[in-house]
Design a protein around this nucleic acid. Sequence first.
RNA 1: GUACCCAUAGCUCAAUUGGCAGAGCUCCAGAUUGUGGUUCUGGCGGUUUGAGGGUUCGAAUCCCUCUGGGUACCCCA
Length: 436
Amino acid sequence: MSSKSKPKPKNKRSFQAPKGMRDILPEDQIYWEKVEQTIKNLADAYDFKRINTPILEDTELFVKGTGIYTDIIEKEMYSLRTKGGDKLSLRPEFTPAIIRAYLENGLSSLPHPVKLYSIGPIFRYERPQKGRYRQSYQANFEVIGEKDPVLDAQLIQLCFSINKGLGLKNLITQINSIGCSQCRPIYRKILTSFYRNKKKELCSNCQRRFQQNPLRLLDCKEAKCIQIAEQAPQIIDHLCEDCHNHFRGVLEYLDELEIPYILNSHLVRGLDYYTKTVFEIWPDDAEGRQISLAGGGRYDKLIKLLGGQDMPAVGFAIGLDRTINRMKEKKVKVFSRSRPLIFLAQLGDLGKKKSLKLFEELRKAGLRTASSFGRNTITTQLKIANRLKVRFALILGQKEALDKTIIIKDMISGSQEVVPLEKIIDKLKKKTRTKI
RNA sequence: GUACCCAUAGCUCAAUUGGCAGAGCUCCAGAUUGUGGUUCUGGCGGUUUGAGGGUUCGAAUCCCUCUGGGUACCCCA
């Protein structure tokens, strides 16, 4: 390095992460590790198998699976065309991709239900906001091949278990049934006829919904539309016998599990493939805006739609970014990984060489050791040792290297002793075992 | 896609309202040439204020456009 400092050229263009996307920094990793570990343990306990699918899929998969009239497909997909001309999209959700993998890899030959989970990023092109990113992370659970309502309830239980495992309470299930291909068209007619003469009073969005997806009229947040929706006929009063019994079954199991829920007849969710049960998990202590932490439901027709057999399924996704935000808000304690207890300081050429070798021996002995081989003064190295809050500093200088010894310095008392180099590992093992 | 607020050193923020861009923390080094924490001293760090244009004798400050962030919609995890 020259003594005269040159003016540092600054790049005219400074780069930023793409809008709505962000770095997860080292200081935050403890939360992500905790969340992933908790989810892995519980997935295992509930007998889910992990599956990883590509981040990109055929665009058509989502258009067909998620549904062409959903906001997700209409305006939120990151789509691209490859050099070969394939139309691909970054996954905006997991479910169609998981079903594609299930069909493509012949997982249908496994004993059913097939229970799969996945953790990873999803992408939606929308305006960023608190708890909403263009790249966000979800853990996704699917149970394929079981129509019994007990699975719907157990999935909700799993979601509560994950939250509990992360120290999060005060949650409530918002639940509804949106019927099936038998009863929903009938209800749809009833609903449309209810809305027909009120169409002019609706917001512009709802005018469009009236044509494309009348069920979503119930979900509008506009004051005038809410008022109308409150008068609207409710789907649970128009379910067919099968759907009615199924929904009653889910609620009975939730009662049995003592999971708090409220019936929300306006919950319809923005994905087309749902049948029967739909649910979201909300904080029940939030003031103002309700932000869902997890959501899911049953999709008994999707697998056939995507080319498989007629096969019922149910699943949910939990938003990890929002979950971690909530852990921070609730000041959930997350223990960081243990720090190195030892710092290895070296002096002189011979000391540095011997230290490099010793570092490997310490590592093999399972003694996590910090070091700063690039620094050569003892003052600086001990300063760093102090900052790292290690318990012991090892000093291996020219003199020690020649004598085949090493100094152990207790960083709390400041006392130090000289030990033969060959004894150092035993000595440290004893010390680190007793003095933490 | 709509509305409002915001952007000054790596971080947190000043700049007497249009008049010479500063401080604390961090980082690096020295005081102390083989011994840390406290203290003291110095240094790096802004091509002059997110980017580009405009008004003005003069712009971090006023105007326009863009980018990014926050919040509320929409929607969802």
